[in-house]
Amino acid sequence: MVQNQIGEPWKTGLFDCQLNPANAIMTAFLPCATFGKIAVVLDGGKMTRRSGSLSYLLLMPLLCSQVVMGSKYRAKLRKKFNLVEAPYGDCFSHVFCSCCSLCQEFRELQSRGLDPNLGWNELLAQQAMQQGYPDQVQQPPHNQTMSK
């Protein structure tokens, strides 16, 4: 049932959830939280974790409408990194293995240096540091004390 064999392979398999047990457990109980983190990265910070999670959560009871959002963002991730649509199509993966799909997408972003746990602002700061632009990263002020 492989849809499209054009592109690069995923860094991990669809059913390799044990590679990140903390994320697998979180996704099993709160898939909306994992989706929110993924959406923030793929939307370039335009969506917040809260709004992504909330929209996913609200759509879940509506005839499994989260499949539409999940497969849309899976396709967006594949396009961004030129990934093959395998082992199943995006929609099929989210219909039958939505938690495994979210976990795989989360691991893919992590393996490419875009850790969804960090959030968009932290990712930008990390990238600026890696590219040698530390002056563009706002550092918190050093320890301050009050004196009379």
Rank of each mutant, 00 (worst) to 15 (best):
D90R: 02
S101W: 12
L102K: 13
L57A: 14
T145Y: 12
S55F: 13
N121F: 04
C99D: 07
K76S: 08
D135N: 10
Y133A: 03
L114A: 03
L62G: 00
Q104R: 15
L102T: 04
A86E: 11
P9R: 13
S93V: 02
V2Q: 09
L14Y: 11
W120Q: 03
Y133W: 14
G119Y: 11
P61E: 00
Q127Y: 06
M69I: 06
K148S: 05
Q127D: 06
I6Y: 13
G113N: 09
Q139K: 12
R112H: 12
N143I: 06
W120N: 05
D115P: 08
M146I: 06
I25C: 04
A33I: 14
S55A: 06
Q138S: 07
G7K: 06
Q5R: 10
K37E: 13
F96W: 14
S98R: 14
H94L: 11
G113A: 07
P31V: 06
S101T: 11
S53I: 05
P116Y: 12
K72I: 00
A24N: 09
S147V: 04
C99P: 01
T27C: 15
P61Y: 00
G70D: 08
S55W: 15
A86C: 08
S111H: 14
V2D: 01
M129Q: 12
Q130T: 02
N4F: 14
G132W: 13
Q110I: 12
Q110P: 09
L62Y: 00
V40S: 09
V68P: 03
L124F: 03
Q131E: 08
C17D: 03
R107H: 12
K11E: 09
L109H: 10
E8V: 12
L83P: 01
L118G: 01
K76V: 01
M146T: 03
S93E: 10
Q3N: 06
E108T: 08
K46Y: 11
C32I: 02
Q138H: 10
E85L: 05
M129A: 04
N23S: 07
G7W: 14
K148V: 01
G89M: 02
T12R: 13
D43Q: 05
L59Q: 15
